[in-house]
Amino acid sequence: MKIKVIVTLKNGVLDPQGKAIQQTLNGMNFGNVEDVRQGKYFEIEVKEKDEKKAKSLVDDMCKKLLANLVIEDYKIV
């Protein structure tokens, strides 16, 4: 079963790459771009048929490795 995870910076944490992308977009005449936050996306193939169990495993992985909860939030989608 494939589980998808999105890791993003928490609100309020400076994202200099996002800022640089936003400024570049503004410079390319996408003037209405007000903010960009960059994140990470994972597709995790888990050998598990029960979706609930698979997601709970991935949740544990997020806490232990995929996200650093000091600055990042994660979402299992």
């Binding site: 944490v13 200099p16 000091v70 600055i71």
Partner: peptide
């Protein structure tokens, strides 16, 4: 060390990239 949890916080990308 910050990733092990022995030290608090994290080292992020430099402010001016």
């Amino acid at each position: 060390l910050t990733e092990t949890g022995l030290l608090k916080g994290i080292l992020q990308q430099n402010k001016f990239l």
